[in-house]
Simulated assay, not measured.
Amino acid sequence: MQTENHSTSSAKADGERDKEIGFVGVPTTSGAPAIPLPKSARLPINRCNLPAAILGSLTFQHAPVALELDGVKELHRGLFELLDKLDDVKERAHAFMLHMNASFFLGQPEQAGFTADSTLDRSRADYLRMVRGWAFDADGREGAVMKGWVESRFGLLQRYHGGPIRDFSDDTYRRYLEMRSAGLYGTNALEAQLDLLYTYCQYELARSHPGKMHLTLYRGVNRMDDHETLAQLDGKRRVVLLNSLSSFTANKERADEFGDYLLTAEVPLSKIAYYTRLLPDMLRGEEEYAVIGGLYEVGMAAY
């Protein structure tokens, strides 16, 4: 039995408009309804090989393909040719970090235009600081940068940052834009650094999980109403619209420390932006995975 709420009604209206431009959700093998990604949650353009209407759809969750950011592999072809020759994961991580440092002058900020008399020193605002800041506070400045990067590259709009974002003229959205701008100001091609981090993450996931398209990941939440539900499939499954970027974990036992309800999702590998074990000492914690948003069929259970 499918229940309808405001989000469901909005999705239906968006679905009618999508039919006019030729996009209709494809029924999934799990029996979930064909619900398109609402237009209010996506941009008409992005910087990868699939539009947001497709990569953010429920169909994509069940039948994903690889996502590639425009020009990243071509620009850094030498790095990935080197990685192909290395069998040890630690050696590959070391090679990646050396390449990142050399490409963006992370160890030589003066080569990137920073000067000692700058009124604001942002030389240390690099990709590592962004992911660490995201892990510490997803609603902080670094979190705003990460969510903004997803919006720019994948075309998925943020739905929450310190509060729900439904009206782009309200104070919550304005604060998000201020944080995002402050986080990017004076930095050294920060979003391009995140592009390369994502592309390397995808490379490592493909090598560590050959032939696999999904990982089963978990998220602890305090209130199910905090997630936009577009369809209630049965007593244990629902279709939700996730924020542009959300934290999940591979450790089911750790997930219950973060809320009274457990969400379980089959997450496409191509929608994992990074994970804690990707690089040495990048993050320490509960096997966190940063998951790119859109529509997801999730299981739910109370502890």
Rank of each mutant, 00 (worst) to 15 (best):
1 M>H: 10
6 H>L: 09
7 S>T: 13
11 A>R: 12
23 F>T: 05
31 G>R: 03
31 G>Y: 04
42 R>G: 11
44 P>R: 03
47 R>I: 08
52 A>I: 06
62 H>K: 04
64 P>R: 01
68 E>A: 12
72 V>G: 09
72 V>E: 05
76 H>N: 13
81 E>C: 13
85 K>Y: 12
86 L>D: 00
87 D>E: 14
94 H>V: 06
104 F>Y: 12
104 F>H: 04
108 Q>K: 08
112 A>K: 11
118 S>I: 12
123 S>W: 13
124 R>G: 10
126 D>R: 11
127 Y>G: 01
127 Y>V: 03
127 Y>T: 00
130 M>L: 03
134 W>L: 13
135 A>V: 15
135 A>S: 15
137 D>R: 10
138 A>P: 11
142 E>P: 00
143 G>Y: 09
143 G>H: 09
144 A>G: 15
147 K>G: 03
153 R>N: 12
153 R>F: 11
155 G>P: 15
155 G>Y: 02
156 L>D: 01
158 Q>M: 04
159 R>T: 12
160 Y>C: 10
161 H>I: 07
164 P>Q: 04
164 P>S: 09
167 D>E: 05
173 Y>I: 12
176 Y>D: 06
179 M>L: 10
180 R>Q: 14
182 A>S: 10
193 Q>W: 08
200 Y>E: 04
203 Y>W: 11
204 E>F: 12
207 R>W: 00
207 R>Y: 00
208 S>P: 00
208 S>K: 06
209 H>K: 00
211 G>N: 12
213 M>W: 01
222 N>S: 12
224 M>W: 02
224 M>E: 04
226 D>S: 13
234 D>Q: 05
237 R>T: 04
240 V>D: 08
242 L>Y: 03
245 L>P: 07
247 S>N: 08
249 T>P: 03
257 E>V: 07
260 D>T: 11
267 V>K: 01
270 S>H: 04
271 K>E: 14
271 K>Q: 15
274 Y>A: 13
277 R>L: 08
279 L>W: 13
285 G>E: 14
288 E>H: 11
290 A>E: 00
290 A>P: 00
293 G>W: 03
